[in-house]
Nucleic acid binder design. Structure first.
Lengths: 119, 119
DNA sequence: ATGATACTTAGCGATATGGCTAAACATGAT
DNA sequence: ATCATGTTTAGCCATATCGCTAAGTATCAT
């Protein structure tokens, strides 16, 4: 079980950080250098470098060095696996939606009566 | 900058783990108890418990205790924020690609006449 | 060749994550 | 009451993550 899908792992992991999502959004406007990406974050360069290499490791961005400047750009097709995972899940979830709906409703009702566990 | 969106943070973070994704996929088939969810993972109960509370914290599942058994179910609308983030990004990324396309086209045309810009 | 610029690497500290065991509850069955 | 069952809590260990500073490398400008 637990088919390890390192691709999805890395994608989700990379996107779990707000700084990294902000970088992606910034890069959607066009390529930028490391410093340009760092400035609006308020973080130090090495820290941003780390974020960038996580993004690059996940395949979300590509970068190349020109002289002493590295410029980074989005890899547009990188979100595809994520999108198809989402689509797959939605398909599965919706297949059971009717039953789940009833069930959740029942859960909520139960929760209103019995005080759940002491949490 | 970096508007922290804890909602997305938690969602992406929760989905970054293969065990947790497997649990979700399992739950798409219908509700299950903690033990039932634990069995196929090969992990110990407390470990699975932790995964479940991460999923519940992210709003991806709901659970309620009936007697000594806790059953868990998917929360179907939970993926919505993720889906809309993805859609937003895709829109931005595609807009960028269009502009890039135009830009390249423009470069080509200019090049036919005079020497292009310095880079 | 000197210095400024733009990254890059190395390494530290605090906290988070993901696994475990052992022990505690809580409920259902006898 | 006792015991089995199903979950939960507490706490440990190893590793990963995210921030930093300090020092290194490479390139460009003078």
């Amino acid at each position: 079980m637990a088919k390890h899908d390192p691709d999805l792992d890395q994608l989700f992991q990379a996107l779990a950080d707000p700084t990294r999502r902000a970088v992606l959004t910034r890069l959607a406007e066009g390529p930028a250098t490391v410093s340009e990406l760092a400035r609006p974050t308020g973080l130090r360069l090495p820290t941003v470098m780390r974020h960038l290499s996580v993004l690059e490791g996940a395949g979300l961005i590509a970068s190349a060095k020109d002289g002493r400047v590295r410029s980074c750009a989005i890899v547009p097709e990188a979100l595809a696996p994520l999108r198809s995972w989402l689509d797959d899940q939605r398909a599965l979830w919706e297949a059971r939606l009717d039953r789940l709906d009833d069930y959740v409703t029942k859960l909520m009702k139960e929760r209103e009566h019995g005080p759940g566990p002491k949490n």
